[in-house]
C-alpha cells in the first residue's frame, strides 16, 4: 500500500526522536502526502510499523482535523468563520464559495479539484476574513479575490 520511498521516510522518522511514538503524527503526514488521505488499511499499515493496534492509530487520526479519512480535492479550501473573521463577514465568503463551486461544506467538486471546508481560527485574524488553500494563506478575502484565486487554481 505504501511506496518504498514513503516506507523509507517513515523508518527514518521512527528513529529520529527520543521515543518512537513521537513520530506517529509526522508519519501520518507522510502517509497522507502519498495517499491523499488516511484510509483504514493505511492506519493498520502504520500501526504495524509502530507496534500499535489499528484502533490506537485511528484514535489519533480521528482526533486531529487535518487528517482526512476520505479522499479530498486537489485544493482544500478552508474558510475561517471564527469570531474575528465572522466580524469581517466571513460567512459571505463561505456562501460565495458554496455557490461558485456548487458544493456544500465538506464536499468535493465532481472534477476532484476543490474541497470546501469551514475551519476554526487559523491565526490570521488581522487579515480577516482569511482562508487557506491547502497550506497557503489568503488574506482579506473578497468575492473578487475568490474569483481570481479559483481562476489561478483551476
Amino acid at each position: 500500500m505504501l511506496s518504498e520511498t514513503t516506507r523509507a521516510k517513515i523508518l527514518e522518522l521512527i528513529q529520529k526522536y527520543p521515543h518512537k511514538r513521537t513520530a506517529l503524527i509526522p508519519v501520518l503526514y507522510v502517509v497522507q502526502a502519498e495517499l491523499g488521505h488516511i484510509s483504514e488499511p493505511a492506519m493498520t499499515a502504520v500501526g504495524e510499523l509502530f507496534g500499535l493496534s489499528p484502533a490506537e492509530v485511528k484514535e489519533v487520526v480521528t482526533f486531529y482535523t487535518m487528517f482526512y479519512r476520505a479522499p479530498v480535492g486537489k485544493h482544500v479550501l478552508q474558510v475561517c468563520t471564527n469570531i474575528s473573521c465572522m466580524l469581517c463577514r466571513a460567512e459571505e465568503i463561505l456562501d460565495y464559495l458554496k455557490t461558485k463551486l456548487g458544493i456544500a461544506v465538506g464536499e468535493t467538486t465532481p472534477d476532484g479539484k476543490f474541497t470546501l471546508l469551514e475551519v476554526e481560527c487559523m491565526g490570521a485574524c488581522e487579515a480577516a476574513p482569511a482562508m487557506q488553500d491547502n497550506y497557503d494563506y489568503h488574506f482579506h478575502m473578497t468575492k473578487e479575490k475568490i474569483d481570481r484565486l479559483l481562476e489561478i487554481l483551476r
Binding site: 521515543h19 511514538r21 513521537t22 506517529l24 509502530f50 489519533v60 482526533f63 486531529y64 482535523t65 487528517f67
Partner: peptide, 27 residues
C-alpha cells in the same frame, strides 16, 4: 532541537495535551 507539527486541535495548546500529542497520542 526537534520541530513537530500539530495536526489541527485547539486543545493541544493546553500544555499537558500538547505533551500527549508529542508522545504521539490524541490530545
Amino acid at each position: 532541537v526537534f520541530l513537530i507539527r500539530g495536526a489541527g486541535a485547539y486543545i493541544c495548546g493546553e500544555e499537558t495535551a500538547l505533551l500527549e500529542s508529542l508522545e504521539g497520542k490524541k490530545g
